[in-house]
């Protein structure tokens, strides 16, 4: 139960009416600058994933022993590896794999988790009990461990990693979605619609579902970051795709062997992961503040 005075309620209304300026704009320069920077990073890596040939100066698989283990310099920004491959180009090409794992597993895990949660929350009763117990069980195995078990059973491969990470993220989405549905379905406007004579499915599609989605947006944005971390972790452990061009985790894993002689091989792929995940998380945080109904009506 939160205190809501007439004034705060009114300010909330006023903010919505005036186009809901996000808190970032109000907090001024720094955060806006951060968000612009993050946007640039995200766009850059998306471009890398879509058209790597435009951005990479060298073919990623070109091996030339005459330039083996060169440190970062003007011609090879990130240096080269043992086989003389240009590390920057390898990272650029690797972004496709990494981003694919992040986005695909969020889509798969998020959609199926949300579906389970929605059905569970709206149907209630026995259906709810069965689904939630299953989710409880799924939840007991920590995410990455579950992903590891799945990936170990499936063997190495890109889609296997996607599946593994997606399965591990299902319980989180299911729980959040269920909680959200449960809270929305008792809101007065949902009851009002039922009292008018709307059928349960109509109530669900027109009122309950559309009003339940906002935490899911936040969660899946933050989830992209988490999935990329998990995916590259699996691939670091050797469960990635060995045939396609290596993703960031795999490059890093190869670089570990040269840690003492060529720090750049393990540093730069990890830096790419951090930069991208950080940017996505920054957006996730911003989105959370923006969509938070509690913060709408208040200062600070």
């Amino acid at each position: 139960m939160r205190q809501e005075t007439a004034l705060t309620r009114w300010i909330g209304r006023e903010r919505i009416a005036r186009g809901r300026k996000p808190s970032a704009a109000r907090r001024g320069g720094t955060q806006r600058l951060l968000l612009y920077g993050a946007a640039a990073v995200v766009i850059y890596f998306l471009a890398c994933a879509i058209v790597p040939q435009w951005l990479a100066p060298f073919p990623p698989m070109e091996m030339r022993m005459d330039r083996s283990l060169l440190p970062p310099g003007p011609s090879h920004w990130f240096g080269t590896d043992y086989y003389g491959r240009d590390l920057y180009s390898v990272v650029v090409y690797g972004s496709r794999q990494s981003l694919l794992v992040g986005i695909a597993s969020v889509l798969a895990g998020g959609l199926s988790g949300a579906l389970l949660g929605a059905v569970s929350g709206y149907a209630g009763g026995l259906v709810d009990a069965v689904i939630m117990r299953a989710v409880d069980v799924l939840m007991t195995v920590p995410g990455l461990l579950l992903a590891l078990a799945v990936a170990a059973a499936l063997g190495p491969g890109r889609w296997n990693i996607v599946l593994a990470v997606a399965v591990a993220s299902v319980p989180g989405y299911a729980r959040v979605m269920r909680g959200q549905i449960l809270s929305v379905k008792v809101r007065p406007y949902v009851r009002a619609s039922a009292s008018i004579g709307a059928s349960p499915s109509r109530v669900f599609w027109t009122h309950v579902l559309p009003n339940s989605l906002s935490p899911l947006y936040v969660m899946s944005t933050l989830g992209i970051g988490a999935s990329i971390l998990a995916g590259s972790g699996l691939s670091f452990l050797g469960l990635g795709d060995w045939n396609a061009s290596p993703d960031w985790g795999a490059i890093l894993s190869q670089g570990r062997g040269y840690m003492t002689v060529a720090w750049w091989i393990s540093a730069f792929p990890g830096f790419a992961i951090t930069a991208f995940v950080l940017s996505v998380n920054l957006y996730g945080d911003w989105l959370r503040d923006f969509l938070d109904p509690k913060k709408n009506a208040r200062g600070k």
Binding site: L229, F236, L252, M259, S266, I273, T274, V277, L278, N281
Partner: peptide, 18 residues
């Protein structure tokens, strides 16, 4: 905090070793 949740542990571990 953001860095904490955005850095892969295998990377920050290697960086610490370095």
């Amino acid at each position: 905090g953001l860095f904490g949740v955005s850095m892969p542990a295998f990377w920050s571990g290697i960086m610490l070793i370095l």
